[in-house]
Design a protein around this nucleic acid. Sequence first.
DNA 1: ACAGTGATTGGCT
DNA 2: GCCAATCACTGTG
Length: 217
Amino acid sequence: MQKSRRLTKTNLNVSCKEMALYLLGKVLVRKLDNGSILKGRIVETECYLGGEDKASHSYNGRQTPGNEPMYMPAGTTYVYFTYGMYFCFNISSVEPGAAVLLRALEPIQGLEIMKKFRTVKKKGPLKDTELCNGPSKLCIAMNVTKDNCNKIDLTESERLWIEDDGGRIEATQIVNCRRIGIASAGEEWAAKPLRFYVLSNAHVSKRDKKAENDLIS
DNA sequence: ACAGTGATTGGCT
DNA sequence: GCCAATCACTGTG
C-alpha cells in the first residue's frame, strides 16, 4: 500500500468530464476543527458544464454571488444550499462555469463520527452504505456546509483536500449514465450521460440498471 | 423494489 | 413569489 499523495493544482486543472472520471477512486479528506480526520473514497460524480447545460447553475453564462466559485480556478470548492435544508458539494473544473458534483463516497475513516452527524429520527444506527450515498448525505456525514467549506482551494486548505492513495478504478468498471434530479432542465439535457459511478459499488446513491447492462454486455 | 409525498428556507427574478 | 443538482418516510407489490 503506497503512501497517500495530496492532489495538486496540476492534477485538478482539467476539463469537467476529465475531472469527473479522474476523481473516481480518489479520497476526500475532511479535517474537523477538533482535529478528527474523516475520509471517504469518491465513487460517484456528475458534470455540470455551464454554458449550454440547462441543468447547470451557470447555464447560459449566468453569474450570481452564489455560483461565483464555478468561475474560480479549477480545484475550488462550490457548496450550495438547496431544498431548504441540504447542501451539495462541487469542485470547479478548468472551464469557467463548470463543476463536478460529488454524489457518493465510500466511507474509509471516521465512520463513528460520520454516524453521529448522520443520526436520523426513527431508524437506529445507519449502515455504512447509508452514510454517504447521496450528495447531501455526504455533506452531512463530513460536516461540509456553505459556511465552513465553500470557495476553498482544495490544494491548499487545512480542512479539506483530496488524496490519491493508489486506488484505481478500471475504465471497464465505470458506469456512464444520465444525471439525477434535474428533470426540470428538460429531457434533452437530463438524458445526457454526465454521471459516472463505480459499477457494483454498494455506496452509490442510485444505480442505473440499463446503463450497467450496456456496460457489461 | 419502487412510487408518492411532505419538509423547509435561502437565493434569485 | 417561486422553487430547488434531496432526503426520509410511508404505502403498495
